[in-house]
Amino acid sequence: MIEIKNLKKSYLVNGKNSEALKGINLKIEKGQVFGIIGKSGAGKSTLLRCLNLLEIPDEGQIIVEGEDITKFNKRELREYRKNVSMIFQHFNLLSNSNVYKNVAFPLEIAGYKREYIDKRVKELLEIVGLEDKEREYPSNLSGGQKQRVAIARALANNPKILLCDEATSALDPLTTKQILDLLLHLNNKFGLTIVLITHEMDVVERICSHVAVMENGLIVEVGKKDEVFNSPKSKTLKQFLRSQNEGVIYLDLKEKAM
């Protein structure tokens, strides 16, 4: 479904060229929940943002359903973006619009009629479990509720792919679990392909079917989650797994203490 070939991207930082992506090759199939993990600065965010061309790659191809998206003109790109939605760490909701208007936004810009928008918004709010919050403004919502609104907004145009940019990193563990359950539900029910980046191992553990590990702008390990996690090869993954185990031990101790 998504095929990335030799993707390169560099930035000019203080007059110096800094390579964020040094030639990424990756295949993501339909229906997968694909996790990209790595330390900060590894290039995972740049990679994800290339998938809807929020970042324009310098070199390489991104082929989505047979079409190279890097060749799209502006209009084709806008149409493509309606099929590939994104949710963010800080939700990025319209603060002066209520929940209803936020979810209606992508439908309004796509030019749908008011009756359809109304019906669709109600449907979406039901999917994310916020039917009773239609008239609330984002400032009155909890983090988890805000992310639910963002998810409803992202789903409005029936995208085939959902990109999650550290979508649970600003949420507490319980809310994280609920949001992940929702994403998994969307994956199961609608066959939504999900690509997520995170530095939280729990997120990968809980919902990813496949995983790629990034180090210094390159993918160092990739495959089915269980296979990759059972025989970690890269330094990053070994460290991540170790710190996760320490986390488990820590939680155990805390539970025993209580």
Binding site: R78, R81, K82, M86, F88, N92, L93
Partner: peptide, 14 residues
């Protein structure tokens, strides 16, 4: 907020 603008871009807004 730049993020809100980015979200709109990512949703295909002109």
């Amino acid at each position: 907020n730049k993020g809100v603008v980015e979200a709109a871009v990512s949703l295909g807004a002109s």
